[in-house]
Amino acid sequence: MSTDQVTLYAEFTAVAGAEAEVEALIRGYAQAVRADPGNVAFDVYRRVETPERFFVFEAYRDRDAFNAHLGDEAGSAFNAKLRPRIVEPQSVLSFLTPVTES
């Protein structure tokens, strides 16, 4: 793992009744993000104990790749569709730093 790599997770909660729509949106968006040259990982999960909660593990080659991801039109379109379907005002991001080398 490069020390320049940007690693994070995003979490959000689908509003009641919108779980399937949110899952469909994130599935389509995941395909687009994974095609980005600077993307290392974009793995989407639903919490077992609270399936309305989504967890997305993301990694990007470096800060430039992450910034390109943030400025991507596909991301803007995805977030515009996602916002009215989630409880939070936006995805909650948590940035990570490695403790051990892989």
Rank of each mutant, 00 (worst) to 15 (best):
N79R: 15
L96F: 05
G28S: 13
R47L: 02
F12K: 00
S2T: 12
E21K: 07
G38V: 04
K81D: 15
R85I: 14
D43E: 13
V48Y: 02
A24G: 03
N67I: 10
T13K: 02
A14R: 05
S91Q: 09
V56R: 02
S102V: 11
P37R: 11
I86D: 06
F78C: 07
P98T: 06
R85A: 15
F12Y: 06
S2K: 13
F78G: 04
F78V: 06
N79E: 14
E23V: 05
R53Q: 06
F55C: 01
L93G: 02
N39Y: 00
D36A: 14
P98A: 08
F57G: 08
F55W: 02
E19V: 11
S91W: 08
D62E: 14
T97R: 14
G28H: 12
R47S: 01
P84K: 06
G17S: 11
T97H: 11
V6K: 04
S76M: 15
Y9G: 06
Q90W: 14
E23T: 10
V22H: 05
V33W: 03
F78R: 06
Y60H: 13
A68T: 05
V22Y: 06
V87P: 07
V48D: 05
V56W: 01
V6H: 04
V44W: 02
G38N: 02
A74D: 09
A20C: 08
S76W: 15
E11H: 09
T50V: 04
R46M: 09
L96V: 11
V56F: 01
V33T: 07
A80P: 08
E101M: 11
T13S: 02
D4P: 08
T97D: 12
R27N: 11
F54K: 00
